[in-house]
Design a protein around this nucleic acid. Structure first.
Length: 430
RNA sequence: GUGGUUGUAGCUCAGUUGGUUAGAGCGCGAGAUUGUGGAUCUCGAGGUCGCGGGUUCGAAUCCCGUCAGCCACCCCA
């Protein structure tokens, strides 16, 4: 090792072929399921103007990778003591979607359903299931406040999990308005709401006693936290607390009944500050955090457009889903790998090897042709063990082709090029 | 952002209380043998022990820093 090759940045990864084929296969499966619900694919840039991403939540701004202004603008900003960055990498897909909708509204249908899959970046410290560059898979519906759409995005998301992992997951459901009502009822002042919510969210992890302790540490008086926890323990009549939220949740549960396990969880909070109504998360025993998260954000698009437009979305954590799929050894059909290897033992046969490769490709096969002559043994070994190619097409001296199955090391009868191509083509056409 | 832990050949790992030229298996290369099909045998290449400082007569080993991986916290997908 003469030099130390540079590694990817902290928390970001290279994806080798085997790994990447799985990622493509998983993304395809998800796209296909989203498409069943009529969600049209869109893409938005990795970078957004900082002001688009800013202002939703101060917590997010710490996680934002910002991009320096360029050239004279940078020097001016330094001189004037202004902000040095004007762009930033997106840290989720919801803010870019809101911006996208506001910018393209005229060309979009009154109720716009879309799927949005791509990488996002957060300057977090990496750990299990957490990266600084990772994929999210969002479905969003813009243009209607109907809780039927919460039900719809939940069903689409649940179908992804059910298809790939079976029934071992639950959708937790709550409503931001309800949480606020609970906090108000317990006498907790508005300015303490955010800090109190963070503590509430941890019930799973630290139990009720832990939450009580943490609320105290966050400056919530004992009487208030006791009232809050008691209310969450026995929520009583939600309709009295917040009629709209209660009605929305009832509707969501009715429309998803029998198709997804949706459970009311009064402790569910969700981090993003832009949620305004129902919020939801996919959880499963195999992972301690959320596998997917979403909710209604009726105020976000209005920030860019001036007039409010209701919207709801659900985002799958692609990396976490992939992590669980791998832990459970769920196979992902990974297409696109080479199917036939054409060895080359003598330089004089190169043209014929190329022609054989072309004939096989014409049948739709993925073919690797050996570029320079070498020992047949070594070529077949590499093809089988390193490249994982199932078949070899061996050129015989008389111009015939022998098909060999590399794993079993069994050869067929010599065939003409056409017959061999036909034969191999059939083996992969199923 | 905080804390813990790991880093030795392309890969998986050994390396004693600090002590000469740092090892193995697999892989790689050459040769022999084999029926030009993966075997077997012989030989060989490949490491500034993540990087940078420090302690010491002497550091892969001890200390500090740094980078990267993993784990937890914070927060989140």
């Amino acid at each position: 090792m003469a030099v130390q090759p540079p590694q990817p940045p902290n928390g970001m990864r290279d994806h080798l072929p085997e790994d990447y084929r799985e990622r493509l296969a998983l993304a395809d499966r998800i796209r296909g399921i989203y498409a069943k619900y009529g969600y049209a694919p869109i893409e938005t840039p990795a970078l957004e103007k900082v002001e688009v991403l800013r202002g939703s939540d101060p917590e997010n701004e710490k996680l934002m990778f910002e991009v320096l202004k360029r050239g004279e603008k940078l020097e001016e900003a330094k001189g004037a003591g202004e902000g040095l960055s004007d762009l930033a990498l997106r840290f989720d897909l919801t803010l870019p979607l809101a911006r996208f909708y506001a910018a393209n509204r005229a060309k979009l249908p009154p109720i716009f359903r879309c799927q949005h899959i791509g990488p996002v970046w957060r300057a977090d410290r990496p750990q299990k299931g957490r990266f600084r560059e990772f994929m999210q898979c969002d479905v969003d519906v813009v243009g209607s406040a109907s809780p039927a759409l919460e039900a719809e995005v939940i069903l689409a998301t649940a179908e992804v999990f059910r298809t790939l992992l079976g029934e071992g997951f639950r959708v937790h459901l709550n409503d931001r308005r309800l949480l606020t009502a609970f906090l108000n009822q317990a006498g907790i002042p508005d300015e303490k709401h955010p800090t109190a919510l963070i503590a509430l969210d941890k019930l799973d992890k630290i139990q009720e006693e832990g939450v009580r302790k943490e609320l105290a540490e966050r400056g919530i008086p004992e009487a208030q936290s006791a009232a809050l926890l008691a209310a969450l323990q026995a929520p009583g009549d939600l309709a009295k607390l917040h009629p709209e939220a209660a009605a929305a949740m009832a509707s969501i549960q009715k429309l998803t009944e029998g198709q997804a396990k949706v459970v009311f969880d009064p402790h569910l909070v969700r981090g993003q500050g832009y949620y305004t109504g129902p919020i939801f998360e996919v959880r499963m025993a195999e992972f301690s955090g959320a596998m997917a998260g979403g909710g209604r954000y009726d105020g976000l698009i209005g920030r860019f457009l001036g007039t409010p437009v209701p919207a709801v979305g659900f985002s799958i954590g692609f990396e976490r889903l992939l992590l669980v799929l791998k832990e459970k050894n769920v196979p992902l059909a990974a297409g696109g790998s080479p199917q036939v290897f054409v060895p080359l033992t003598e330089a004089a046969l190169q043209e014929r090897a190329f022609a054989l490769g072309a004939a096989l490709r014409a049948k739709g096969l993925n073919v690797v042709v050996q570029p320079e002559p070498g020992k047949l043994v070594a070529q077949l070994k590499t093809a089988d063990e390193v490249l994982g190619i199932p078949f070899a097409a061996l050129l015989e001296a008389d111009g015939k082709v022998v098909i060999k199955h590399l794993k079993t090391r069994t050869s067929g009868q010599p065939l003409s090029v056409e017959d061999a191509a036909e034969d191999l083509g059939k083996r992969f056409s199923a």
